[in-house]
Amino acid sequence: MDQYLIESFREKHREFEAKFNLHDERLKSLEKDSVVKGQQIERVFEMIDDLKSEIKNDINRMENSVMKEARETRDVFREEREWLRQQLKTQADAEEAASTREHTERIEQEQTKRTVWQFIKEILIGLFALFGTVVGGLIAYQEIISAFFK
């Protein structure tokens, strides 16, 4: 019976060793898988970090691009406003010059009319004075003649 127990014990021991070896192999396989999975996870994290870095760079480039375009747009609008101001100023100056020219022309026309009427007035005064002198001279001449022949 001792032999039977020893054999039974050995059989159990072999079964136990087989199971142990199987478990040991499975553990080693799982450890290898765990290491591989860990490496894969690390690679995934590295990829995520790279993607984050790329996204940050893209965001920075986009912000810079938007800011540059905003500056350019502001510059264009500023130039357009300045151009419009110049156009309005030029137009206002032209209108003022036209208004001044029209006013000056009216004044010159009025002065010309006054000058013409003054000239006509002076001629009429001269004619009336001449006529008065002639009439006065004729009257005086008539009185002189009538005084001699009386």
Results as ranks from 00 to 15, higher is better:
residue 70 A to L: 14
residue 70 A to D: 12
residue 70 A to W: 10
residue 71 R to S: 11
residue 71 R to F: 10
residue 71 R to T: 11
residue 72 E to K: 02
residue 72 E to Q: 03
residue 72 E to R: 03
residue 73 T to I: 15
residue 74 R to T: 14
residue 74 R to N: 15
residue 74 R to H: 15
residue 75 D to V: 04
residue 75 D to C: 04
residue 78 R to N: 14
residue 78 R to V: 09
residue 78 R to A: 14
residue 79 E to A: 05
residue 79 E to N: 02
residue 80 E to M: 10
residue 80 E to F: 10
residue 81 R to H: 11
residue 82 E to I: 13
residue 82 E to M: 09
residue 82 E to R: 07
residue 82 E to P: 01
residue 83 W to T: 15
residue 84 L to R: 07
residue 84 L to H: 08
residue 84 L to N: 06
residue 84 L to K: 06
residue 85 R to K: 09
residue 85 R to P: 00
residue 85 R to G: 02
residue 86 Q to F: 05
residue 86 Q to L: 11
residue 86 Q to Y: 05
residue 86 Q to V: 07
residue 87 Q to W: 00
residue 87 Q to D: 01
residue 87 Q to P: 00
residue 87 Q to M: 01
residue 88 L to A: 13
residue 88 L to W: 06
residue 88 L to G: 06
residue 88 L to C: 10
residue 89 K to L: 04
residue 89 K to R: 08
residue 89 K to T: 06
residue 89 K to F: 07
residue 90 T to W: 10
residue 90 T to A: 10
residue 90 T to S: 12
residue 91 Q to F: 07
residue 92 A to L: 07
residue 92 A to Q: 04
residue 92 A to C: 03
residue 93 D to W: 01
residue 93 D to H: 03
residue 94 A to V: 03
residue 94 A to S: 10
residue 94 A to C: 02
residue 95 E to H: 07
residue 95 E to N: 08
residue 95 E to G: 00
residue 96 E to M: 11
residue 97 A to H: 07
residue 97 A to I: 01
residue 97 A to F: 01
residue 98 A to D: 03
residue 99 S to T: 13
residue 99 S to Y: 09
residue 100 T to S: 13
residue 100 T to I: 10
residue 101 R to L: 03
residue 101 R to Y: 04
residue 102 E to A: 03
residue 102 E to N: 04
residue 103 H to F: 12
residue 104 T to I: 13
residue 104 T to S: 13
residue 104 T to E: 14
residue 105 E to V: 05
residue 107 I to V: 11
residue 107 I to D: 08
residue 108 E to N: 07
residue 108 E to G: 01
residue 109 Q to F: 03
residue 109 Q to C: 05
residue 109 Q to M: 06
residue 109 Q to S: 05
residue 110 E to S: 09
residue 110 E to W: 05
residue 111 Q to E: 14
residue 111 Q to C: 10
residue 111 Q to A: 12
residue 111 Q to W: 11
residue 112 T to L: 13
residue 112 T to W: 14
residue 112 T to K: 14
residue 113 K to T: 07
residue 113 K to S: 08
residue 114 R to V: 04
residue 115 T to S: 14
residue 115 T to A: 14
residue 115 T to C: 12
residue 116 V to E: 04
residue 117 W to P: 02
residue 117 W to H: 15
residue 118 Q to T: 12
residue 119 F to A: 15
residue 119 F to P: 05
residue 119 F to S: 15
residue 119 F to H: 15
residue 121 K to W: 12
residue 121 K to E: 14
